[in-house]
């Protein structure tokens, strides 16, 4: 409709809208009543946040208290004078229990176990989203179906597999490679699912335009799909990193309890004696292990929020 008629009507409508005086008082009143109206919501949100934070705060407070005090009274009593805080728990954890080595081990487990599955998933997701091949829908459904398989049911079969594979004079089990592979396998279905949806929401014309411009599918993947999916990749990286960093089960099963290769979670779990002695050390150790995920989360959190929206709702 490029006839001059509609243009005139549109301009007319626009100028009419602008001509209407803005009733200032009403606008302010609306803002005020809106603020009042939202107050219950704000109160509810703040209350929920506080309730959510209580266990963490309790843990934090307890980590600075003597073990007798923790055993004898509630954590909130420490918030009233006399303030009797101590760093002894942190001292003991950092000094005596091989924590530094475990921290490095944890990084050595987590970083490859984050990068490998995301890389593999990105290739797979791109193929599922943009490349035609027979059985594409069925294969993708199979992978989404894997999401519902509980990790625990796969532990023993995979362990048997790892034990049967030999590298030199050692079985695969108990090596870092084993745990990377395990985390990759367990992480892939979700990663592929999330990335496929994100890639699928990218505009088709962008890729077609690139093909006409001379791009191959590989070029389109590295030059278009990856750079435009940074939010989704970052969100996925956070998910996977947190999951691997906090994991105890897979580490215990495939890496074992050997001190030299034990990650943080295994070392911390070993702090507590079989009869529950040294329980107070757990609080300090927990905070040390939380430090890195917190840093990762806060530096990447804007991608985290965007990525969740981006993957599921809209590109």
């Amino acid at each position: 409709m490029t006839a001059p008629g509609p243009v005139v009507t549109q301009d007319y409508a626009a100028s009419e809208l602008e001509a209407q005086p803005r009733p200032q008082g009403v606008a302010q009143g609306n803002a005020f009543t809106r603020f009042i109206g939202r107050t219950p919501v704000h109160i509810a949100i703040i209350a929920l946040c506080l309730i959510w934070l209580i266990p963490t705060v309790a843990l934090l407070v307890s980590s600075f208290r003597e073990s007798q005090a923790v055993a004898g009274s509630g954590w909130w009593t420490a918030l009233t004078p006399p303030f009797e805080f101590t760093l002894s728990n942190y001292d003991r954890v950092l000094d005596t229990n091989n924590l530094g080595q475990s921290f490095v081990n944890s990084l050595f487990v987590s970083i490859p176990a984050t990068i490998i599955p995301i890389l593999v998933a990105a290739f797979a997701a791109y193929a599922f989203a943009w490349m035609e091949f027979p059985g594409r829908g069925l294969l993708f459904m199979l992978i989404v179906g894997l999401l519902v398989i509980p990790l625990q049911s796969a532990l023993i079969p995979v362990l048997q597999l790892f034990v049967s594979v030999r590298i030199g004079d050692q079985t695969l089990n108990g090596t870092f490679l084993a745990i990377w592979l395990a985390h990759t396998g367990f992480g892939l279905p979700f990663a592929i699912y999330l990335l496929r949806n994100f890639f699928g929401a990218l505009p088709r014309e962008m890729f077609e335009s690139a093909y006409i411009d001379g791009a191959s599918p590989v070029t389109a993947f590295f030059r278009l799909a990856l750079p435009t999916s940074v939010p989704a990749l970052a969100a996925l990286a956070i998910f996977q990193f947190m999951w691997v960093w906090n994991d105890l089960l897979i580490a215990l099963v495939y890496l074992g309890g050997q001190q030299s290769i034990a990650p943080l979670t295994v070392t911390i779990a070993n702090l507590v004696g079989s009869l529950g002695q040294n329980q107070q050390l757990l609080t300090a150790a927990a905070f040390i292990s939380m430090a890195l995920p917190l840093i990762v989360f806060f530096t990447l959190q804007r991608y985290f929020v965007r990525g969740i929206l981006g993957g599921s709702v809209k590109g």
Partner: peptide
């Protein structure tokens, strides 16, 4: 050939 798309199809990044 070169093609111009309805949705522009620019490379956003």
């Amino acid at each position: 050939i070169a093609m111009v798309f309805q949705s522009y199809a620019l490379y956003p990044h």
